[in-house]
């Protein structure tokens, strides 16, 4: 709690925490948007979401280690994960699309453990990061430090999110995806190939997560056990923001990023993860309690 005192004494620190929080929040928004997409279109909650982020991070890490500038690897990570997402859909996910939701949760949980443990075996449990070589910007007499790569990643995340949004709104495939989300059966009757839509949606989601992971490894770090936290964050964000409301998703993500950063500072970083997971529980229970006053429950 000493750090809380510190925050009061030096309010400028809050600005620093806030900025860093917003930067990471933008990356959360990508993963959360992907989750909302898959959830809305396929009625599946993808527990392997975080593992896609983690694998995207490793793609960038290895390419950067081979000498490519990490920023150029973002599309590569996205493409690699797109293929993985497609393959996973064609082998496993298509079998659970129309099943009970718990079946799909368990199946993707299995995928999540599989990917996590594969990464652990193949890439080892070390914490990795990719150096971008960009410098830092100083504000307010050097009290606020903004590393340029975080700024770049922030912008990248926003651009990617906007591109996806436009794709869904404008393109023909995007329209098919949105039609399927509204009513898969009706879309099928109207001639939409929903199986293809599902495959694209799942692959697209993996690609977004891959790009997010690529940004994560540049600004923070990556390790095989990173995934679950991203999955649960995404779930939390989507629960708060609802499906299909991109503004709310961005807002909730930035809020979560900031809240997490403050909590990590005040409680100590060893409790930051505990904070995130406890927050999930608190938010779910709180939302449900609010709804139950209207004689409803979370659906």
């Amino acid at each position: 709690m000493d750090n809380l005192q510190l925050l009061f004494n030096a309010p400028i620190l809050s600005v620093q925490l806030l900025i860093d929080g917003l930067f990471i929040g933008a990356i959360f928004a990508l993963a959360a948007y992907g989750m909302a997409l898959v959830w809305g279109v396929m009625d599946i909650i993808n527990i392997a979401q975080g593992e896609f982020v983690m694998l995207g991070g490793y793609v960038t890490f290895f390419l950067a280690a081979a000498g490519v500038h990490p920023l150029y690897t973002v599309p590569v990570a996205a493409a690699a994960l797109y293929i993985l997402g497609w393959a996973l859909y064609r082998t496993v996910v298509f079998r659970v699309v129309d099943k009970d939701m718990f079946i799909s949760i368990l199946a993707t949980f299995g995928i999540s453990i599989l990917l996590q443990q594969l990464a652990n075996e193949l890439f080892e449990a070390d914490i990795r990061t990719a150096e971008s070589g960009l410098g830092t910007l100083l504000f307010a007499d050097g009290l606020i430090v903004v590393s340029q790569i975080k700024l770049v990643a922030f912008v990248c995340a926003l651009v990617l999110g906007a591109a996806l949004f436009l794709f869904l709104k404008r393109s023909r495939l995007g329209q098919a995806i949105r039609a399927t989300a509204q009513n898969a059966r009706a879309a099928r009757i109207m001639g939409v190939n929903t199986d293809r839509v599902f495959a694209t949606t799942f692959a697209l989601n993996a690609a977004i997560c891959g790009a997010a992971g690529s940004l994560v490894v540049m600004t923070w770090l990556v390790h095989p056990y990173l995934g679950l936290a991203y999955t649960l964050r995404s779930f939390m964000i989507v629960t708060v923001a609802g499906l299909g409301n991109i503004g709310a998703v961005v807002f909730a993500s930035l809020g979560l990023g900031a809240a997490e950063n403050f909590a990590g500072f005040v409680l100590g970083t060893e409790y930051q993860a505990a904070f995130v997971f406890s927050l999930l529980v608190v938010i779910l229970v709180w939302r449900n309690a609010l709804l139950s006053r209207q004689r409803k429950y979370l659906k």
């Binding site: 939701m101 949760i105 505990a274």
Partner: peptide, 28 residues
């Protein structure tokens, strides 16, 4: 009293959070 009011997948994922949170708290 709080968690069992959640239904279906909300319950499943909430309990997933509870499990990990407990581990995180223990390790700190």
């Amino acid at each position: 009293s709080g968690i069992l009011g959640l239904r279906g997948h909300y319950f499943a994922i909430c309990t997933l959070g509870v499990g990990v949170a407990a581990g995180e708290i223990a390790s700190g």
